[in-house]
């Protein structure tokens, strides 16, 4: 009985002592914080993705409350709605941005862009990019080891094992930009998000000359300039043998899509324009032709495998597939 009493007494004394110490410590080290920071943090999406440039949502909330001018701050995940709500709460002017979506600008599928060697190192794009050109002959395109997939906090980007390329799920993508930063080849771009996820973009970032591109990949931009000529809105520019469609100027008219000899211009969420009646070829897009080893002899024919019919097209100005010495692999 006595033991029990002592035990209980000791514990009580210890508890009171600890409470007193804790009270004074809490008083001494209390951090005064603006309660609005907590409120703003609750309004933010809470993904802690770092897309705003801060380490997490708390950092963003802190900055939003403390800075007078918050026009430079933007949460790509919450978007304009979230920013408007925060600005209204804080009585400041919010930045407004159109919605964006990550876009993978490489069409070099396993079929279109044959592998010339095998990478046996750590499965990382960053490691491969620091070592050499990549598993294909293209020095600019997607390496296919999925650094972007690993970087995505929203499960919005996945490798397609068929094509060997990453694919973005536009409904999940928050345009936080993590994949853009993770890609050592700078293949991914944040582009304007159209309603119903429509898009037209050049799915290639190769700055090589046309002949080099053709040798490495059948879906690359060869910089021929046809799309630039056909564009009525001046949205397409050619620089360094590469076409670029400015999403701010593009009106989704789709003329360039039919003009591209290699099918490098991708069309998403829309049907292509009806084909010009010149070519008597099959109207529907033929199932992708198997990459035959004989591709070299008739480059035009293989390009026609793309949904766009180019039977009557003049040869691309720079196309000279057999000019350079053949790759040692063949």
């Amino acid at each position: 009985m006595e033991v029990l009493l002592y035990t209980i007494l000791t514990l009580c004394v210890l508890g009171v002592l600890a409470a007193v110490i804790l009270y004074f410590v809490a008083q001494k080290f209390r951090v005064e914080e603006d309660p609005r920071i907590d409120e703003v943090e609750k309004m933010l999406p809470g993904a802690n993705c770092g897309g705003c440039g801060f380490a997490g949502c708390r950092g963003m909330a802190d900055a939003l409350v403390k800075r007078d001018d918050i026009s430079e701050l933007f949460c790509p995940v919450g978007g304009s709605d979230c920013m408007k709500a925060v600005a209204a709460y804080l009585g400041k002017a919010a930045a407004e941005k159109q919605p964006e979506v990550a876009t993978v600008r490489c069409g070099g599928t396993c079929e279109k862009r044959p592998r010339t060697n095998e990478f046996n190192g750590a499965k990382s794009c960053a490691v491969a990019a620091s070592l050499y050109v990549g598993e294909t002959g293209c020095a600019f395109g997607c390496l296919g080891f999925g650094d972007c997939v690993a970087a995505c906090a929203f499960d919005a980007i996945h490798m397609n094992p068929q094509t060997g390329l990453p694919e973005v799920d536009p409904d999940k993508c928050t345009a936080c930009g993590a994949c853009v930063k993770a890609c050592p080849k700078m293949v991914i771009e944040l582009r304007k998000k159209w309603p119903k996820n429509r898009a037209v973009y050049v799915s290639c970032v190769s700055k090589d000359k046309g002949a080099v591109v053709m040798k490495a990949c059948k879906a690359g931009c060869i910089g021929c300039g046809k799309c630039e000529k056909v564009c009525a809105f001046g949205a397409i520019t050619i620089a360094n043998n590469l076409a670029y469609i400015d999403p701010q100027k593009c009106k989704l008219c789709r003329k360039c899509v039919n003009e591209c000899p290699t099918g490098a211009i991708k069309l998403v969420g829309m049907d292509p324009l009806p084909k010009e009646p010149k070519a008597p070829a099959a109207p529907k897009a033929a199932p992708a032709e198997k990459a035959a080893p004989a591709a070299k002899e008739t480059p035009k024919a293989t390009q026609a495998a793309a949904p766009v019919e180019k039977a009557a097209a003049a040869p691309a100005p720079k196309a000279a597939p057999a000019a350079k010495e053949p790759n040692h692999e063949s």
């Binding site: 592998r115 010339t116 060697n117 095998e118 990478f119 046996n120 190192g121 750590a122 490691v127 070592l131 050499y132 598993e135 040692h328 692999e329």
Partner: peptide, 10 residues
């Protein structure tokens, strides 16, 4: 040569 060359960092 039958196979593709293997590449890896040293």
């Amino acid at each position: 040569m039958a196979n593709k060359l293997i590449v890896a960092p040293a």
